[in-house]
Amino acid sequence: MAAAAPLPPLPPQFKSLQHHLRTAQEHDKRDPVVSYYCRLYAMQTGMKIDSKSPECRKFLSKLMDQLETLKKQLGDCDSITQEIVGSAHIENYALKMFLYADNEDRAGRFHKNMIKSFYTASLLLDTLTVFGELTEENLQHRKYARWKATYIHNCLKNGETPQ
């Protein structure tokens, strides 16, 4: 599903949101619900970071256009109209990514796809915060997934075997 008009260049203040926005783009066709809530996370977080400077306001306004368009396109989807259903969708998707990467890790299969799955799981657990505070279990999953992604990435880069 195509989003609305493309976004302007990302202001430097929003650098921390670039991975969530890229995940949104990657899921436009694969899973528009994931795409929608990643953008919503970026929108909410961006407004907290800077909604006053002209370049940030312009960026957030375009991002809001995309969100409104997506909501219209997905109007009959329970995961969009009922946030409790949306929350379950994002949590299930994040845990599915996490479990895939964790199984690969435990089987000793280290590759780029599993690193990306760990990292994407951590980004989606960030996204889950649009619905409220994370549970202790999800906080632990997010911390572990982010650490694993970084650790295995560095091992592969340095030609070492992860432990």
Partner: peptide, 27 residues
């Protein structure tokens, strides 16, 4: 002009907040 600029920014910020609230059916 400084206060006018601040006022415009504040109005646009409010507009974004309102659009976000509408998007999430919180109004």
């Amino acid at each position: 002009t400084g206060s006018v600029g601040t006022s415009v920014a504040s109005t646009e910020q409010d507009e974004l907040s309102q659009r976000l609230a509408r998007l999430r059916d919180q109004v």
